[in-house]
């Protein structure tokens, strides 16, 4: 998990702000080898340091930076492995949200050691109008806000995704289920190019 999040941050900085900034951040934070490996674990305080340093260097609060990172994980132009894995969680945005409680276990099956906290889901009346998503660990709220926003775009759905006032949950309001075109997602599309 830590390696995955670290790598996501590395890709976010390199692709949005340039490799030079990342090299500098990695040097200041003593990232071993200058980069994160998805398959390795890292001490939690290293990730904390990197999060703070990235936010500081791009002049954002940590929560704002994590939201941007969440969007980038799904919408990044290069290498869409994570986006594809998330698309398997539902053919439409509503299905994706309804299936969120299964997501931690699905991700654990895909990436052993990836420990996402449990995700609680409550529907808002009337049915289909929206949901409140409450993660077991409020620290992932900003990242998840970004991911859910980008997934709404991904499905061509117009939705309002905001942290709740106490910042412990996420308020998802469905405005228009079929607002635009969904991004391409052919089953098996990630298998041929996987060796790249």
């Amino acid at each position: 998990m830590r390696g995955l999040l670290g790598r996501a941050m590395q890709a976010f900085v390199i692709e949005s702000y340039g490799a030079a900034l990342w090299d500098d951040i990695a040097r200041r934070c003593d990232v071993p080898g200058g980069g994160f490996e998805i398959l390795l674990s890292y001490p939690p305080d290293l990730l904390d340091r990197v999060e703070d340093e990235v936010a500081r260097r791009i002049d954002r609060t940590r929560a704002e930076m994590l939201e941007d990172l969440g969007v980038h994980i799904v919408a990044r132009p290069h290498g869409d492995a994570v986006r594809r894995l998330l698309r398997f969680s539902g053919a439409r945005f509503g299905d994706f949200i309804e299936n969120l409680p299964d997501l931690p276990e699905r991700l654990r099956l895909a990436v052993p050691g990836l420990d996402l906290p449990p995700l609680d889901l409550a529907a808002v009346a009337p049915p289909g109008a929206g949901w409140i998503v409450t993660p077991g660990d409020p620290r992932i709220v900003p990242l998840l806000v970004g991911v859910l926003r980008a997934m709404a775009d991904e499905h061509g759905t117009l939705a309002l995704v905001e942290a709740t006032r106490d910042r412990r949950g996420i308020d998802v309001s469905l405005l228009c289920a079929e607002h635009g075109a969904a991004r391409d997602f052919a089953l098996g599309g990630g298998l041929r190019g996987a060796a790249r």
Binding site: L85, R106, V111, G188, G190, L191, A195
Partner: peptide, 9 residues
């Protein structure tokens, strides 16, 4: 297919 993609990733 999801697991196959995760595996190849």
């Amino acid at each position: 297919l999801y697991l196959l993609e995760a595996k190849s990733l």
